[in-house]
Simulated scan of single mutants.
Amino acid sequence: MPEGHSVHRIARQFARNFVGRTVHLSSPQGRFAVGAALLDGHVMTDARAVGKQMFLQFDHGLWLRVHLGMYGAWDFAGDILMDATIASANGRMGQTNQRGTDVASAVVDSAGENSMHSIGAPRRTRVRMAEQEKEIDQPGTFPPEPVGQVRVRLLTDTVSADLRGPTACEVLDPAEVQAVIDKAGPDPQLDASTAAEDRFTAVVRRKPTPIGLLLMDQSVVSGIGNVYRAELLFRARVNPYAPGKTLREDTVRGLWRDWAHLLRIGVETGQMMTMDDLDGDAWRSAMKNRADRHWVYKREGLPCRVCGTHITLAEMGARKLYYCPRCQA
């Protein structure tokens, strides 16, 4: 399932390529025909992510809410304006380091981020954005023919976006959007304030629920999935089975701050890079290979990078849980 960094990156693609433009919506699959008709022909005015959910606003006040779930993905095609980070030698998006872009003389766009202007964008391309981001062959005509079961297509005169396999795709009014957001836990990409940290800390420290479950509860904190859960807990040396109410306040606050830190790296690079103390060749290797950028995730049976104890694989909340039984005792 795409974690918070992926959804924020997708929202930024919509902000660059669709906001301020008239958008035509259709449902090639047919399942979203009524919803598409409600939004068709209107100007997109906002694009935002809240944890694992994305919201697209239109000029008549209605919103499109999308949750990709386990299998959802967006395909962008056309003359796409993108981050410089999307240009990659290995087909993955996110070839930057945490200190900034590798692209020489990169410019900063109006959102304060490096853009493809630095390497000659916009350009005609196709990009799939989900948990695994990659460029795919661009067909010769625009817009391309829909591929697979496309729930909804958003189309401007230069760019298209096709959505397949979402858990949720619905039209909401402003009150309904606010109700959904109010139920979500804080997202440090949207609110890095002390108040947001306090809210997270207070909720965790009054719960008897294991912290490994609390971090995956989107009403407690937004955006954390299975990868970030395992890595955050290892980085903090916290036992995933420890009840939230037994954790020290400074430990819980540290989890929040580390989540804000790792989420920022993920949004900037497109990778869930959790070994963030790497440099040079080690950094480049980790950007290319997932096995080189995580402390415990998918390393069951391998020696802990810190103590040498074999990483344990268990199940928690119907998801795989990875941890070091010694470092996180």
Rank of each mutant, 00 (worst) to 15 (best):
Q29R: 07
A314Y: 01
H67V: 14
G4M: 02
Q178F: 06
R290W: 03
D109Q: 10
P146Q: 04
D173T: 14
T45H: 09
A73V: 14
H117T: 04
A11H: 02
R92Q: 15
Y241S: 04
D157I: 08
Y323T: 00
P166H: 14
P2L: 10
K134V: 09
M287F: 05
Y323R: 02
A168E: 15
A179R: 15
A73I: 10
S26H: 03
V43S: 09
R205T: 10
T167E: 14
D217G: 04
R299M: 01
D59V: 10
A15L: 07
P28M: 04
R319T: 07
N114W: 13
K320N: 14
S219M: 05
P143I: 11
G317D: 07
Y71W: 14
E133M: 11
M70N: 14
W256A: 02
R299L: 04
I10A: 01
V221I: 15
S219D: 11
R264S: 13
A36Q: 01
V66M: 12
V19C: 07
R124Y: 07
Q53W: 11
Y322E: 01
E176F: 04
V150N: 02
A196I: 11
G91L: 08
D250G: 05
N90G: 11
H294S: 10
A196K: 11
Q13P: 00
A192V: 11
P122M: 09
